[in-house]
Each structure stands twice: as C-alpha cells, then as structure tokens.
Simulated scan of single mutants.
Amino acid sequence: MPAGWDDFRFVKAVAEGGGLAAAASALGIDHSTAFRRLAAIEAGLDAPLFERRRTGYVPTQAGAAMVEAAERIEADVTRFSRALAGQADTLSGELRVTAPAGFASGLMMPILAGFSARHPAIRLDLILAEEALNLSRRDADVALRASRGPDETLVGRRLTGIAWAVYGLAGGTYGDLAREPWIGVAESVAGGLFARFVRARAEPDRVRVRLNAVTGLRAAVAAGLGIAPLPCFEADSDAGLRRLTDPEPDLSADLWILTHPDLRRAARVRAFMDHVAAAIRPLRPAFEGRR
C-alpha cells in the first residue's frame, strides 16, 4: 500500500522528536496510536524506517529518504501557501506576529490595540519568543526583531536603534561598579553577548544571580539583586531604577520589522508593518537612550 502525505509527515515527526512520545505529543495523538501507526507504515512499505536504540529512534536509509521527501513536500506546500497569502489584497484574515517576550506589555499591547481598532477584520496571533522563528516556514508572517543584522532572506525596515545601559536602584549608593553585585545572563542567550559584557566588568564572584533570558533582568534589578544592563526604553521609564552608565556600544542593536518576500505585498502584512513603523517613530528617543 503506497504511503500517503500523512504517513510522510508522521515519519518526519518521529525523526525530529527522536521517538514516538515526542511525535505523538507534536501531532496530538497518544503513544499507543503512534506505535500502531508506525508499525502499519513499516508493514505497508515492507521496510524498517527506524532503528530502535536506547538513545532514541534513528532513521534507517529508507526512513531518512522518507524524511527528506517529507521535507520537500512540506517546503512546496509552504511555498504555495506563502505565494497565495502574498496575493491577498483584503484587510482581513489571520496575521501571525512574533516579537521578543520582553516587548509584550509595554510595547506590543498598545500597538496591537491600535491596529486592531483600525482593522477589526484582521485576527492577530502574537507569538512571544526569545528565539527567532522561521518566517520561511510561516512560523510567523511578520517579525519584530532586535538584531545587528537581520536575515538576508527577509525584507523589511529598520525602525530604531536600541540602546542599553547599566542600571541599579534609584535610591542605591554606588561606587566602583566592578565591586557591586551583578546580575548575569547565561552564555546561551544572544550568542553570549550579555555574558561577555558582564564578564568584562565583574569578577565571577560578583555575579549574584544568573538568568537564562533577558526578560527577567528588570525585575531582578528592581528586587535589589544587583546591577545589570537593561534596555533604556524600558528602564528609563521605571522610577525605581537609575541609569549608572551611558549607553553601552557593546550592547547596542537595531529594531527591525521583517517579513518573507513572498508576503510583502499582502494587504494585511503591509498595513501592519506601516502601523508599527508609525507607532515606533515617536518612541525613537526613548529607544535610543536620549533622555
């Protein structure tokens, strides 16, 4: 019995998850159903698709070929979907937007509220994520992204610079910052940018706490755990915090709004990107750390 598209998609999920449990979770089925499904596909093809090892499921040659075919099919379907969405000339339908988690309340919600009021027929799906989602796969349609150099496969515009400085408590007394307690960030965040910044300014024993994301830095400083770099547009508006340094060039970045080239002419994408650009324009002084 020839395999159908759902079979290819299932085998790909098993390969990506390294086993049936992860595949079942990703596809919204139970483990026993996944077990029977794989057995039926292998029986229908009369070929084993995975080696069952203690470390997980490893595709056989036949399994790897099936996964490659599934990726090609998925890419073709996604390409068709993008091309179709890019032709949409009505201000309606779903728009998937991704932004850093730290932008959720102070920045994104007022912008989304204004856009929704102007275009009530567009349904917004906001995905807050520290990692950069894949716009080619349509994980999102539009990305608001802090970057020093956006992906060259995407199109969009630079909205503003983003300045960072070191902050402490407004009522604190600070001398040599190298001797103050610091709040660090894990090496895995932003390619180690923040970890290197703190390491260059404080000995390891001065780092009181380390976070695995920049999202919690402001709350940690406000709680009195130590000093840390924060984005000026966020920290300058907090009366409980005080800027201790000028904007730090080592941490500067730009704020971009981006989409896939296939989607740039879609009416809802154009409308959203124009709306965000207009909303950010008066906020540039705050983003750039100009008091």
Rank of each mutant, 00 (worst) to 15 (best):
M1Y: 07
G4H: 07
D6R: 01
F8R: 12
A15E: 06
A21H: 05
L27T: 03
A40F: 02
A40S: 15
I41V: 15
A43S: 14
A47L: 02
R52I: 01
R53M: 13
V58E: 09
P59A: 04
T60E: 10
A65W: 09
V77A: 08
G86Q: 12
G86A: 04
Q87F: 13
T90P: 06
S92E: 15
P100N: 07
G102T: 04
S116F: 01
H119V: 02
R123P: 05
L128V: 03
A132H: 14
R137V: 08
V142D: 09
G149P: 06
R157P: 10
Y167A: 04
G168I: 02
L169P: 09
A178H: 09
R179T: 15
P181Y: 03
G184A: 08
V189R: 06
G191S: 08
A195Q: 12
A195E: 09
A195P: 04
R199C: 11
R201M: 00
R208G: 04
L211V: 09
T215G: 00
T215V: 15
A219H: 13
V221F: 01
A222G: 11
P229I: 03
C232Q: 07
A235G: 12
L244R: 05
S252A: 15
L258G: 08
H260A: 15
V269T: 10
V276S: 12
V276F: 00
A278M: 08
A279D: 00
